[in-house]
Design a protein around this nucleic acid. Structure first.
Lengths: 348, 348
DNA sequence: CTGTTAGCGCTTTCAG
DNA sequence: CTGAAAGCGCTAACAG
């Protein structure tokens, strides 16, 4: 366990010298090549005695690969991305890759910066979640297509691996459920205007009424920004605009939690006065009071699939044509949308 | 914006050739050395035309530094660590470092693995949060002392930079508040047994009674594991052991949220029947129903301080003696502990 | 101010 | 099976 501190790190040459072999042999032994047990023993001993640890930069430089991948997400504070991170991390670890997390701060980080690690060859590959892919980012994505997997919706002609979920279908599930519960005066708290998910979800919301031949509540969508605080604030807007509201669909659970809280402060009982349905089905949804009905977008599964696609591509000997995987949402019904409150056990 | 894909990446030599200068000059220009504007212009042009991006491995190998640091935390799903990560990330970015996140899965990850990036020189430094530093880890910490900053409590003779918070004092605040509210039959939901924070908090809990000359409720501490689900489960234990409980201190907010939920399911009104106080003051504490009184351990501040210590050390020209910074907790009173419920605005 | 040169530590031919 | 040698792409003396 002797590790040099500031001094000079021990190199493969030191090990070679001590083991009485060449650096090449040490390298081979360490990388699992066949070797006589005697050679192997001496190398191992030298490694242990000296506390040798291979230098990552040197190895990467030579091999042109770092065994590092990254997940770029809009916001570390959003549990849904943490869920993705967890499943990606698991897959990565299984295949000998290290995962690091990059937060793009909802797109505030310069788009160039996001893919920088990739271009510097500091990263072998990346799973990218962008809320609002602009032209510049798309250009960069194209250039790095062979080392990327996207999660989310991008132009069809992009020719990059992607995992998608039909969030509009998820919204239909939510609206259908609210209507089934007898709610007719519905409203929506949407996410950040101008982002793809917010646009899809709003479109899905309106479309769900159209599909049912109901009056379309186009003026009953208020904007939030996907954070809990924004959901909290949105309620005042909402009640000003639609005081008779009896059902609210929120574009994610984080906002739904803020909505729940503020509705309570404003004296509206959930679910008796107003039903609330969220989206994402985060763990916390089973813990709020009342527990939160939510559309699961299967974040964990999407993470796993994205990691599979990416690592398969990185390790392929020949070029692979771009693939798109689709995932289906499902509705998890809890207390916040059902008039007769029934307590239930937590998910986890 | 022309970036080569799989082919062969552009090197500094390609740039040099195109700019009609030497590689050394390109390197200097790119690293901000003085140069005649004409030289600078031609280099910049060549870089742009070729889409050159410096190779990180090569630079790291030569410079013996990666400009990368990491934060190792027990659990990405715990918001308190995400808070730390956010402030560390900010400091790191300001000083030109990239931060990556390593989850140790509550110590399940082999301790060697945690510091591996450091030993491989893949990381210049690390901020480490360990719940349960064992002998092997302490040994490793000592060896890497010049590139580490710890957050948490470690043996005093460790001679490593550390940021600490007096969590026992925080528990005293919580107990004092509960007693002031007239609660006498107190209990505690503790975190993972055997971890330093859990032990400190339990000790602080008992000590708070001793200090007040009250009867010490040693048999009223039930164990959780710092997760929301464990807080939920702990309530059944608690009510079996202490059916008359009128106040609960939880060793963190995640558990407190589970406790709130389960108490409600078991028909106990919070705060009227039972007061609940958590610890960490996560953002969600202002959003639960009722909102959660909590002891802030100033995670963001600790993160910032740790990052400052670490980066100062990494950039020091001479050895710096180890430093320990202490942070004081404070109590944030909300609805869950005060009988007359008053609604309040959210923190964020 | 700039070109040349010598490595950083490792892997990988290529011979033997 | 192993040693020798070349070189991954970059930076930092060192001369000029």
């Amino acid at each position: 366990m002797t590790v040099r501190s500031r001094a000079k790190p021990v190199t493969i040459l030191d090990v070679a010298k001590r083991a009485g072999v060449s650096a090449g042999t040490v390298s081979r032994v360490l990388n699992g090549a066949n070797a006589p047990s005697e050679t192997r023993r001496r190398v191992d001993a030298a490694v242990r005695d000296l506390g040798y640890v291979p230098n990552h930069a040197a190895r990467s430089l030579k091999r042109q690969a770092t065994e590092q991948i990254a997940l770029a997400i809009p916001d570390v504070a959003n549990p849904i991305y943490v869920q993705m991170a967890t499943s990606i991390q698991r897959v990565a670890a299984e295949r000998g890759y290290q995962l690091s997390l990059i937060s793009t701060h909802n797109g505030a980080t310069d788009e160039r910066t996001v893919l920088r690690g990739l271009h510097r060859r500091q990263l072998d590959g990346m799973v990218l979640v962008s809320l609002r892919p602009g032209a510049a980012l798309l250009e960069q994505i194209r250039d790095a297509a062979d080392r990327l997997c996207l999660i989310g919706s991008y132009p069809d002609d992009l020719a990059v691996d992607a995992v998608r979920v039909d969030s509009a279908a998820g919204v239909h599930l939510a609206v259908g459920h609210l209507v089934d519960q007898g709610r007719r005066r519905l409203a929506m708290v949407n996410g950040t205007p101008g982002t793809v998910p917010a646009e899809r979800r709003a479109a899905g919301f309106l479309d769900a009424f159209l599909a049912r031949g109901l009056e379309v509540p186009s003026d009953r969508i208020v904007d939030g920004d996907f954070t809990t605080a924004s959901g909290y604030r949105a309620v005042d807007d909402l009640l000003a605009r639609a005081p008779d509201v009896d059902g609210v669909f929120c574009a994610n659970d984080a906002m739904a939690i803020g909505v729940l809280r503020r509705l309570r402060e404003r004296g509206r009982d959930v679910p008796n006065d107003v039903a609330v349905v969220g989206m994402d089905d985060i763990d916390m949804a089973a813990m709020t009071a009342p527990t939160l009905t939510s559309v699961s977008l299967r974040a964990e599964e999407r993470g796993r699939l994205a990691a599979d696609l990416l690592l398969e591509r990185l390790n392929a000997s020949e070029p692979i044509a771009p693939r798109i995987v689709n995932v289906l949402p499902n509705l998890v019904i809890r207390e916040s949308s059902t008039r007769h409150t029934v307590l239930e056990a937590p998910d986890a």
